[in-house]
Design a protein around this nucleic acid. Sequence first.
DNA 1: CGGGCGGCCTGGAGGC
DNA 2: TGCCTCCAGGCCGCCC
Length: 274
Amino acid sequence: MPELPEVEVLRRSLEPRLVGRRIERVESRNVSLREPLDGPALRRALAGRRILAVRRRAKYLLIDVEGGSTLLVHLGMSGRLTLAPDETARESHEHLALRLDGGERLRLRDPRRFGLAVAVASEGLEEDPRLAGLGPEPLAADFGPQSLREAAAGRRGPVKTFLMNGAVVVGVGNIYASEALFRARVHPGRTVDRLRSAQWERLAAAVVATLRQAIAEGGTTLNDFADGAGNPGEFQVSLAVYGREGEPCPRCAATIRRLVQGGRSSFYCPRCQR
DNA sequence: CGGGCGGCCTGGAGGC
DNA sequence: TGCCTCCAGGCCGCCC
């Protein structure tokens, strides 16, 4: 489901409603997501603690609590995290729920179970194996054409899969990789060793602009993305190429094409993107 | 080592 | 109505 904009929209919707609240009870099912849910460890780390902060790193949501623990949540492809009144009926595939003071419940639902929920030590979080090795945040100062070129040194793969590599830049998934390449007018199959300086400049700027606009528009809701209050996003209306095979390019009206790279669909305009 | 591919899962859409 | 195939926003591990 979510790429950086969706997780950031979710974070912003949850932060004011979670910070300062106490977790009264932790309910977890005995299931395996990307890793098995460890109920006892989650209870030890979270139960009775107040929530101190709600942060994001890459596509991970980080919920810091008292006592030195952080709940690391990843939504995978189909995860949803929602805050709802405690009495709301449990949904199917709801694997974890935190009952909060004030009568609400934070619930993680994830039918495909590609997501993750694990309690880790807040201290040294960046060295956690799940986060170590991640590249720069695209909306931070250390991301730009220079960081892209350095990451591309000695590589030869197509720029589309390069952009989706979390060691290069985090948070750019299948939708926003296609959208940023369209904005930068770079063909998704172009190999990174053949990108010129001006293209790196355009690409870095396009990644930033695309993600910022998507956040401002509440994320992309294709099927089921919603923020913590259940509100869908609007950016799907602004998608220029993703999911639009056969439709006219919004810039030049040529017919948008689809190709498969690394088993994933890429969408592009054959005239604008060379 | 980089890069490509299959695997992990369920569910929705579309064809017949 | 059913049954089948294909496809899906992510990531990991294995292989060459």
